[in-house]
Design a protein around this nucleic acid. Sequence first.
DNA 1: CGACTCGTTGACTCTCTTCAAGGATAGTGG
DNA 2: CCACTATCCTTGAAGAGAGTCAACGAGTCG
Lengths: 248, 248
Amino acid sequence: MPERQVARRVESAEPRLGAPCDACGVRAVSAVSVCSALEVPELERLRSIMTTVHLEPGQTAIHEGDPADSLFNVVSGTVKLFKLLADGRRQITGFLVPGDFLGIVLNERYAYSAEAVDRVHLCRFPRRRFETLLGEMPRLERRLLGAASNELVAAQDQMLLLGRKTAQEKVASFLRMLARRTARQRSPVTSIGIAMSRNDIADYLGLTTETVSRSLTRLKEAGVIASTRRGRIELLDEEALRALAEGG
Amino acid sequence: MPERQVARRVESAEPRLGAPCDACGVRAVSAVSVCSALEVPELERLRSIMTTVHLEPGQTAIHEGDPADSLFNVVSGTVKLFKLLADGRRQITGFLVPGDFLGIVLNERYAYSAEAVDRVHLCRFPRRRFETLLGEMPRLERRLLGAASNELVAAQDQMLLLGRKTAQEKVASFLRMLARRTARQRSPVTSIGIAMSRNDIADYLGLTTETVSRSLTRLKEAGVIASTRRGRIELLDEEALRALAEGG
DNA sequence: CGACTCGTTGACTCTCTTCAAGGATAGTGG
DNA sequence: CCACTATCCTTGAAGAGAGTCAACGAGTCG
């Protein structure tokens, strides 16, 4: 498997004295990151235990079953989370974008693997020390609980999708999810960038690459979407997409 | 739809002065309930805002989209959580058993509906007051975060099941899940009670009742399980079941 | 006892997968 | 700069697993 690469992390151990956080777009933009909604002194303490990590596409951030000794915050890029069956079947359980947490779970071991989709920047926190801080910063803890809540809601939507939606509905729902994410920064959205491969999309939707491809072709034929360049899709009829996503 | 009944809750508003919690098995047995691992004074405060709720099979505890003004702890019975598509397709996202939370999410509205599978007893907490307590009881908050973490892990397992497992593997996984739950109280397990209908199982596994039935028949034919009386299944070959559940 | 729900089984259908091949795209090296 | 190659995406044809439709048996309740 060419995509199963060893994790060669490029860590910047030197703190660069404050620079990383001050310039960080995540803190300002995202309403859900660890850092946003923290006062300066609290942020300072977080920063003191933080290191930054760079990942190239395909590199692994965490591995299912490994001791969960780190916790991350996505700064830039897209990360895919996935679980594997013994024979290699893969289910991608989520895509993380800037502002999202990676490894919130307070369990001993990671329940899934995480791999970079494109070039990724992460903030890394040692779990032990992070948990110590947690006890002293109730606001941070509440924030984590909120993030976990949101993830749970998303997980339930995804279960509905995986268990009960048709291929066409799955793909339409996926596009809408991407559109919503894009809209968090720029709205309204007519063009969305697709960072992940057809294979990734298929493993996220419980389909095959062929079925994803065919579904997209159908959406194009129906005039709901259009694709000019690679890795980018134009939304022509958002209402039709909504109807398709929910089985209209 | 006969199963979509109106929620006629039977609430005991009178606190019965301490009795409910002292006698409650949940607190002692379960490692994950709200009440366990709380000191007596904290427990006392929780109890003061608590009421108990009884539900008959099919009755609704919470409804998707409603304002999330209550939070529950399951005391006895089994509760199913589910989401619906516009045309009635249903996905059951989980079954709650004694000790589990219902409605942890700190969102404005419930993301799913919850219905009693059999006769159910719940402890009910008004969300506002509960959240106030939360700020003063860090231990409770940590506990909630832990519960949310566990739910997330379970949700990811379920996504893998829904997206990538065959019907046979789904049913085998389901039986193992039930066995594990039963084993939390009594181990080892050879006989498990199935509180839910085939229809519920189907909607949990993303299948139809017919396929669930056929899969169970196959497992019987293979000598992996046996069924003496209705609503109960004997595990004859746990190792074979494990292999089947993971695509061996 | 009859009506009802629930579970099982059978026959047929269909959506999605599998298998296979061709086309587009990007990166590489001469 | 352009052939060369690897990878990804698309499209087609055939096949399979699960769904749909239908009937029947068993238990349950009024």
